[in-house]
Amino acid sequence: MGSEAIIVFLLAGIVLVAGANFLSNLISHKSDNPQKREPYESGMTTVGPTWVQFKVGYYLFAILFLIFDIEVAFLIPWAVVFKEVGAVAFIEILVFLVILGLGLVYAWKKGALKWE
């Protein structure tokens, strides 16, 4: 008995969705109609493929996020022990954040944060 609890909640979530789906299948009214299974596009038939190359800006932000998220991953342990360590921790994180901040400013100036 311990971290199995997480698995229990996982299963509970699955049961909830699967059960409700099952229930819905059980009681819903069904009708067949080919138009119903078309993708919705404001009443028009879809033209061209949907899965196309997407705007690169999204990836750019994803990459930026990755970097800053990892930064948070380092900040969390630091934050936990900050009270105990004190001055050294403060200075070190200052260096860390200054470099990161420079990175952010750099991305800013390079136009990586601009959504075009």
Partner: peptide, 27 residues
């Protein structure tokens, strides 16, 4: 392991960036 995760993220970020750049050229 924390550091590995961090580095792996950086690696992925860079790899994806380069792959995107490649994709823009040769689709």
């Amino acid at each position: 392991s924390i550091f590995i995760i961090a580095v792996a993220a950086a690696e992925t970020a860079l790899a994806v960036a380069i792959i995107i750049n490649l994709y823009r050229q040769i689709a």
